[in-house]
Each structure stands twice: as C-alpha cells, then as structure tokens.
Design a protein around this nucleic acid. Structure first.
Lengths: 218, 218
DNA sequence: ATGCTAGTCTTACGCCGTAAGTGAGGTCAA
DNA sequence: TTGACCTCACTTACGGCGTAAGACTAGCAT
C-alpha cells in the first residue's frame, strides 16, 4: 500500500527541487514545522535521501536563506541618490520576506556572510562612501536598515501571529493613549516600513558631513 | 544508583525557581538546547513535574520573556526630554538582552502584549505625544526603537556566533571598501546601538511638527 | 565484463514534548 | 480521629525528530 518505492532507484531529485520544496513547506506550515522527514514525504522520498543534496538540517536552513536572498535582492545600482538606493534595497528585502514568511526567522538568526551578500554589501557601502559617508558609518547604516526590515517582519511572523493589531483589542479603557493611536486601524507592515525608513534616512542625512564631498571638495 | 527520588514527595519547587533555572540554562547553552527534560534534570526533578508550574513548553518560553522583561525594564519617567527617555528605554532593553542572550530569540518571536509591557508602551507614547508627536507616530517610534534593539542582538545571538566581526576575515582583497570600513576593528554591539539610536532619534526630530506644541499652542 | 560512484532506501539510536495514570503527603471538615 | 480531597511529584508510553551506519541498485568508465 502506498509504499511503492524501490531501493537504489534514482528518483532524479535535485538540490534545487529540495530547496524549493523546503521553502514552500516553511511558508505554508511555518519554519518550526519544517522537518527532514516531512520534507522528504513532500518529495516522495525517504528522509536520508535529502542528505545527498544538503549537508544536514542546518545546511538546509542556510541554503533556504541564500535561496530567498538571491530571489529577493537584485544588484544595487552603481550610482543614484543614496537615499533611493537604500530605500530600494530595503523594499526589495521587504518584498522577499513578505513572499517567504517561513524564511524570516532563519534570516534573523544567520549572519549574511555568503559571497553574494557580501558583494552586495560592498557595493552599497561604496555608493554611500561616494555620497560622503565615512566607510564605517556607511556600514552601520546598511546594518541598521537591514536590521530594521528583518525586525519588522519578525513582529509579524510570530507563529499564530496575533500581530500588533491585537494590541488594539487589548488596549482597553485603561490605555487611552494607545487606544487613540490605534483608532485609525491597526498598524500595517507597510506603514511601519515607510515610517522607520523615513526616520532612518532622515537621521543619516544629519550625520552626513555638511559639504557632500562627492564632486566639489569645498 | 543516583535515582534517589521518591514518588509523591514534595520537593518544594516553585515557579520562580523553574523560571530562573530556565533562563540560566538558556543563557548558558543556548535557547535551542533548552528542553523540558534538561531543565528538569537541572532542578533534580522529573520532566513532567514542570508541567505543574508551567502550562507547556511554549508557556515556559512566554514566561521567560516576561521574566527577563520585568528584570530589564523599569518604569519610564513620566517626564523629561523625550530623546533621553527613549534612549534610556533602548539602553535598558539592550542591557537586559545582553545579560540574557538566551532570551533574545524568544523576544524576537513573541509580540510583547503582557499587561506590563502594554502599560510601559502606554507611558512612552503618552510622553511622546506630550512632546508633540501625533499618537500614531509615537507608536511607530517606539516600535522602531524596540525593533532596532532586538534586531541588533539577533545578529550577535546566532548560535556559534561568528558575528559580523567575522566579516573582517572574509572581506579579502576583492572587497576593499568593506575591508576599509573594518580596518579599525570589528563593529561592536555598543557602537551599533549608539549609531542606530542616534540616527533614529535625529530622524524622529525631523518628523516633529516644528512648533513643539507642548506649552505654546501657536 | 568489471568495478566505481552517486542516488536511494533501511534500520537503529537517543533525543524531544507531552498525554495518561499512579502515588505520597498535607489540609481540613465532620 | 478519620477520611475525603487537593497538590506536587513520579512512571510509563507514544509518536516525532535529526542523523549515523550500512545495504542496495543503476548507470558510467574502463
């Protein structure tokens, strides 16, 4: 019954298929429900088979992050107003995470140190330096923006996910200011992103050495 | 051997002891190593005993968050320069998370909706509103700051934790700008916190309606 | 033909969370 | 004093987990 597989037969499974199924499963059921055995079942294969395409579960998770990252982040433009480049980068990341909620927690727990993300980081920092930021400040800036985006999604990815919207219900008469703040409806992810991004970019601008040494050195 | 416990004997275990041991264990071995069985062993008790003090594992994790939060966050002052109150709040949270790295991931995945944290939120938002922010903007502000602090710690809490410092090693000659940015040593948590906080607060200031309607309405 | 290799399945181990049931002490009303 | 009841603890058991070790098979290179 049902058990119709045969030892040794090649099922033609590829690493790409494994990753796609893993992302699908994590998005559908939540990352905490992602197990090697369930993933294998999904692919109509035995669990141990997966270990030929992935080193272990941790390796699978790393690969998921890389996969989603590659799908989300294009190459930043080599030139342009830094404010827009940074905002574009943030929005790309945001859209990627929105499309793959199952990957959010993995993003949060893994430093992005693949060659690809480092190269993107390099490009961004170079652009910011050309805009007048000291290199170190530029690095801080990118970290702050990336952290804000991931942090934003975390708040909405918590499992059963009574997101901040639920605060509205809880904010009874004893929390009048909160109730007032939520009177216009719940705080959406988009509005939080826009707000945080605006504030961060405005804040960065005040940190920029006043002259803007890009073209005219004085 | 060693099995010297007796059925039914009251060992006098309290919820407080359970929580403290849980936090200690999570801080020492990482939150992913926290299991009901290990925790019970730590307390010289059988696993199922814990279920008298905690609803289930999820409940235990919720309680850890609450515990650490209570330990970290005092009541915000009812008055004072909003910049300093917000910065103080951020630093309190930061210190709490620094003291309890095992709780960071739990913080990140749980909306803070205990009565206590809601009350703190209420106080902060009220203060900000008195400083001239619209209620909704004030709420965004607090979320942004809290998210930044938690996000900051997440980057450093990733398990074996080759933190961003490791980027320095990876930034070879092909990533000259990054190497430059890291020439003065790795990016510490403190410097990231200070930078992000400065930028956020400066950004918020630009969002503040120009008059500052606290005292003089026109 | 022979052997190698890569992809697959089988079995097994020691963890995990927790449902269900057992038992020992303490409290307190009758 | 008794005995019912409650609380706290222990025991056993189940199904799921990650993965180490090994066996099998098909196809390719020799």
């Amino acid at each position: 019954m049902g058990r119709s597989r045969v030892q040794g037969k090649h099922a033609g499974l590829t690493r790409e298929q494994v990753l796609e199924a893993a992302v699908r499963l994590a998005d559908r059921d939540g990352v905490e429900a992602l197990s090697m055995r369930k993933l294998a079942r999904e692919l109509d294969v035995e669990a141990m088979t997966l270990y030929h395409h992935v080193q272990n579960k941790q390796g699978l998770e790393d690969a998921i992050v890389e996969h989603v990252l590659a799908e989300s982040l294009g190459w930043p433009p080599e030139s342009g107003a830094w404010q827009e480049v940074v905002a574009g980068y943030a929005h790309d990341l945001h859209r990627g995470l929105a499309r793959h909620p199952g990957a959010v927690l993995l993003f949060a727990t893994r430093p992005a140190i693949t060659p690809r993300s480092l190269a993107i980081l390099e490009t961004l920092v170079r652009l910011l330096r050309e805009a007048g930021f000291p290199a170190r400040t530029a690095l801080h800036l990118v970290y702050a923006v990336a952290g804000a985006v991931v942090g934003l999604h975390l708040g909405y990815a918590g499992d059963q996910n009574r997101e901040p919207a639920a605060v509205a219900d809880l904010a009874g008469e004893d929390l009048p200011v909160l109730a007032d703040a939520l009177a216009d409806g719940p705080v959406t992810m988009e509005s939080r992103l826009d707000f945080t991004l605006t504030a961060l970019i405005a804040g960065f601008e005040t940190l920029l050495p006043a002259d803007g040494r890009r073209l005219s050195p004085r």
